[in-house]
Nucleic acid binder design. Structure first.
Lengths: 189, 189
DNA sequence: TGATGGGCTGAACATTCGTATGGTGACCGA
DNA sequence: TCGGTCACCATACGAATGTTCAGCCCATCA
């Protein structure tokens, strides 16, 4: 997944994967059959991970729990990097996840604001902007001088996002949870 | 450039480029030498184009001129798609452009708001979010049901951006120009 | 009219890639 | 102990790719 994320699927070779995993190229074939199947396996792994984190974090209201935040910061980075690349490389699974995020956001916006506004466009743009930071994480990290996926970088970017986006579009509840969560993390160091 | 943008540099073949241009593979080599040199030529072309458009549009205050907007909408899309891919594929030129945009945005923010806020992080995130829409244009278009680079799609996305981002961070002047420009375009149809 | 030179072509080459195949040794149940 | 299954490896093969090169076409010009 790390190699796919860094180089793209096409530029990543089975032999390179095997070398990074310290096994023979034949073993990769033995386990996954084809390169495309391996890519799908990565897709499914990321998707199941993200679904679980959304359930635990958002649905179960753990967004401000330090142990949840710490766990995410420890496990998510490589998966997020892969997701970012998959969105650009044209993975069907990543496209489906994008659409799902847009629909979730759209319902959120429509609930909070019953006007005639273009909720679909707002939800789409909001989703693309958030994921855009993930896709461009390399450039964000360089411009910041700090790894986006290190605690410092994540907090700076998170706060900047909260500053830039009108609060009502994040959902008041999520907004407050995210802010207090960020402040807790910041207070720890 | 279109092929590089759609498939990525690694997945694009010289033969594919030659076929699309209806010439022989040898001719591509004859003109550009190597694939890497061709890619650099694309980078430089996009960069010079963007610099010129920024000069004409922002510096010369033409952001609300219909002829400027129309010209951009007609010529920019393939270039923007290439830029989006170049940012992910690791082109040095695209990275430099990203940094330049961040610096420009940062000065803008610092001028408008002299507080102790983290202008660097805000400028970086703002740049990444805007470019994120370009990078993810395929997904944005699909979610919208309209091509992002068709006039309708561009207007919807532009207005959604203006709605989502706190106006003060776009610069009051740019904000007003962009809004009136969008409304003019919208009024034309 | 004949020579020249650059734009352009098609074939060829070395390399790399994904994939298929045969084989080896460890482990496990009968 | 035996037979078989499974993880694993080394090798090989066909296809595709970047690149090289010898030569063709044709406009230009003396």
């Amino acid at each position: 997944m790390a190699l796919f994320a860094e180089q793209g699927v096409k530029a990543t070779t089975i032999r390179g994967i095997a070398e990074a995993a310290k096994v023979s190229p034949g073993l990769v074939q033995h386990h996954f059959g084809t390169k495309e199947a391996l890519r799908q396996a990565c897709d499914e792994y990321v998707l199941s991970y993200l679904r679980e984190q959304v359930t635990v974090g958002v649905t179960d209201h753990n967004l401000d729990k330090p142990e949840f935040i710490e766990n995410v910061h420890r496990t998510a980075p490589p998966l997020m990097k892969y997701l970012g690349r998959a969105l650009v490389d044209g993975s069907p699974a990543a496209a489906a996840m994008f659409d799902e995020l847009v629909s979730m956001t759209e319902e959120h916006l429509a609930d909070d604001d019953r006007s005639e506004a273009d909720h679909r466009a707002r939800a789409t743009v909001l989703t693309a902007m958030k994921l855009g930071i993930t896709v461009l994480h390399e450039h964000v990290s360089r411009a910041l001088g700090t790894d986006l996926y290190a605690p410092q970088g994540a907090v700076r970017v998170g706060k900047a996002q909260l500053d830039l986006i009108r609060p009502e579009f994040l959902g008041r509840e999520l907004f407050d949870q995210a802010r207090t969560g960020l402040e807790k993390v910041e207070g720890q160091r």
